[in-house]
């Protein structure tokens, strides 16, 4: 258990190496770029290896830059004080990824929020229904770059 064994297993099972992520101002962080269909296996592995504290799910829409939708999952190992960033990219035309809410219950609300704002279909999520946004904004995927909000004044 621990980061060493996690990194070893990630390389063995999925063929991805740990990369330094110095952009985290808070703590030492390693980034793993994985294939989207591996997310459930990676999440299970994270939990087994002691990365039991979920922090943030942060999607970034890179469609104006000619890329897809990037998903960033931040996890922390409370004992080791090491953070892990799981990064994956899904196409914006068909944004689909498996839900990991049953492995990390903290993600249930986060996935629901990002479904509402980005239109990411988290497969297997039990309640993908409106959470924060107003009814008039439902289905417009407001957080995508293609959505331009109407200004209040000109």
């Amino acid at each position: 258990m621990g980061f060493e064994s996690f990194a070893k297993k990630m390389e063995m099972y999925f063929g991805v190496k740990a990369e330094e992520y110095p952009q985290n101002r808070v703590a030492k962080t390693y980034m793993f770029k994985i294939q989207p269909h591996h997310i459930r296996e990676v999440a299970k592995l994270l939990k087994e290896e002691g990365f039991n504290f979920f922090h943030t799910l942060s999607p970034v829409d890179y469609s104006p830059k000619g890329r897809g939708l990037e998903l960033n999952y931040f996890f922390e190992s409370i004992e080791e004080r090491i953070w892990v960033l799981i990064r994956t990219e899904i196409p914006l035309e068909n944004p689909e990824i498996d839900s990991i809410h049953d492995i990390f219950p903290a993600l249930e609300a986060c996935e629901r929020e990002e479904w509402e704002k980005f239109g990411i279909n988290f497969k297997g999520h039990p309640r993908l229904k409106p959470l924060l946004l107003d009814d008039t904004l439902q289905g417009k995927w407001v957080q995508r770059k293609s959505y331009i909000p109407e200004p209040h004044r000109k």
Binding site: H55, T56, V60
Partner: peptide, 30 residues
């Protein structure tokens, strides 16, 4: 950049992305 501080109610965390512009390209508030 990823940044977090201990706020009154707990850790507040931002994931801020810049594309070289005058403002944030994306800012996630957790």
């Amino acid at each position: 950049a990823y940044s977090a501080v201990e706020w009154a109610r707990g850790g507040i965390e931002y994931h801020v992305v810049s594309d070289g512009g005058t403002g944030a390209y994306r800012a996630k508030i957790s």
